[in-house]
Simulated scan of single mutants.
Amino acid sequence: MTQPNDHPVHFVVGAAGGIGSALCLALAESGAQLVLAGRRAEPLERLAAQLGARSVVLDATDPAAVDSAVAAAAKEFGRLDGLVNLAGSILLKPAHRTSPEEFQETLAQNLTTAFNCVRAGANAMLRTGGSIVLLSTAAARTGLANHDAIAAAKGGVMGLTLSAAASYAPRGIRVNTVAPGLVDTPLAAPILENEASAKASTAMHALGRLGRPDDVARAIQWLLDPANDWVTGQVLGVDGGLGTVRPR
């Protein structure tokens, strides 16, 4: 077992994605010990080697896989201080054009992964407390056309956040969610590759630009920080105003 020290231990699901990479780089620079998790081995192992971190390949829709990996990390390091779920997907279709299979996949990638991470993280933190951070979307906070399935799934993440925050507050476990607007990452590439779509998407954000991975990563890092241990059950919009503000 790795001996406990003063450096926090964080488990990040979806670590090799655009936001995940930015977050892990920032956490590593702050001295955190990291376990990076995701479905694709090659980018995950490359990032882990760069940061001197552990990596584990897993499908976060599989509760047993998440339970096992998180428990193993907590055992290896002697504790777990933070768990972040960045697994997710984007589906832009109205309900009548969304197949049952697409809807179930959207729920699995976004809501089931979040629930599995809360379950595993809470088990690992019951005695020591810690911070669990999930990812929702501004589309679950305001009505955006063609976001029916993803808004439903990410709205569920918000409800999960509130209930889990209440359930685990007596154990010193904080549960919060970051709800971004559209962020310039590989996941958003199909939207941003079209010039008209990219221009329209940008115009929906009152601050006049799309998000950058660092914008979201900084908010997650803040929620992980034990200095902010009086914050729980919150949905933090990091969205250029998309979720609440209408551009002029």
Rank of each mutant, 00 (worst) to 15 (best):
Gly82Phe: 01
Ala217Thr: 11
Phe103Lys: 12
Val238Ile: 13
Arg209Ala: 11
Glu195Val: 14
Leu58Tyr: 05
Gly243Val: 12
Gly18Asp: 08
Asn194Lys: 12
Ala114Met: 07
Gly130Ala: 10
Leu210Phe: 04
Val84Ile: 08
Thr137Pro: 05
Gly172Gln: 05
Glu105Thr: 15
Gly211Ile: 09
Asn5Thr: 14
Ala140Tyr: 09
Arg218Val: 03
Asn110Tyr: 06
Met204Tyr: 05
His10Ile: 12
Asn228Tyr: 06
Leu36Ser: 09
Leu162Asn: 12
Ser201Thr: 07
Pro170Asp: 13
Leu192Lys: 05
Ala203Cys: 00
Gln33His: 10
Thr142Lys: 15
Asp225Ser: 09
Gly156Pro: 09
Pro170Tyr: 06
Gly243Arg: 10
Gly156His: 05
Gly155Glu: 08
Phe77Asn: 01
Thr142Tyr: 06
Ala114His: 10
Pro170Cys: 06
Leu162Asp: 07
Leu187Val: 14
Arg171Glu: 12
Asp59Met: 14
Leu51Asn: 02
Ala72Asn: 08
Leu36Trp: 04
Pro247Gly: 08
Glu102Ala: 13
Leu160Asp: 10
Arg79Val: 02
Ala74Thr: 02
Ala53Cys: 01
Val133Lys: 07
Arg218Gly: 02
Phe115Ile: 06
Met1Ser: 12
Gly240Thr: 14
Ala120Trp: 00
Gly172Ile: 11
Asn228Gly: 08
Cys24Met: 13
Leu223Arg: 03
Val245Asn: 09
Ala74Val: 00
Met1Lys: 04
Ala165Tyr: 09
Ala198Ser: 03
Gly240Phe: 04
Ser201His: 03
Val133Thr: 15
Leu160Ile: 03
Gln109Phe: 07
Ala120Tyr: 00
Thr161Asn: 02
Gln109Glu: 15
Gly211His: 11
Ala74Asn: 00
Gly233Ser: 00
Leu80Tyr: 03
Pro63Phe: 05
Val175Cys: 10
Thr142Asp: 11
Ala71Tyr: 01
Leu107Phe: 11
Arg127Pro: 02
Val133Asn: 06
Ala149Asp: 02
His7Pro: 03
Pro63Met: 14
Ala227Leu: 07
Gly82Lys: 01
Leu111Ala: 12
Pro4Glu: 03
Lys93Met: 05
Gly31Cys: 04
Leu34His: 12
His10Asn: 07
Ala22His: 12
Gly82Val: 01
Arg127Asp: 13
Ala49Gly: 09
Ala72Trp: 04
Asp59Ala: 14
Asp6Lys: 08
Gly241Ile: 03
Ile19Val: 15
Leu107Asn: 10
Val238Cys: 13
Ala122Met: 08
Asp148Arg: 10
Val231Ala: 11
Ala60Leu: 15
Val12His: 00
Lys93Asn: 06
Ala95Ile: 05
Pro8Ser: 11
Ala189Glu: 12
Val57Phe: 07
Arg54Val: 09
Leu47Asp: 00
Ala114Trp: 05
Ala53Ile: 01
Ser89Glu: 00
Phe103Pro: 07
Ala73Asp: 02
Trp230Asn: 03
Met204Lys: 08
Leu144Gly: 15
Pro213Thr: 03
Pro170Lys: 07
Ala153Phe: 02
Asn5Leu: 11
Asn123Met: 08
Pro180Asn: 12
His205Thr: 09
Ala22Cys: 15
Leu23Ile: 11
Phe115Gly: 10
Ile132Phe: 15
Gln3Ile: 07
Thr112Asp: 15
Ala149Pro: 07
Asn116Asp: 09
Val183Gln: 11
Asp215Ser: 02
Met204Arg: 09
Ala145Ile: 10
Thr61Gln: 14
Glu102Trp: 08
Val118Met: 11
Arg39Lys: 05
Leu92Tyr: 04
Ala69Lys: 04
Arg209His: 15
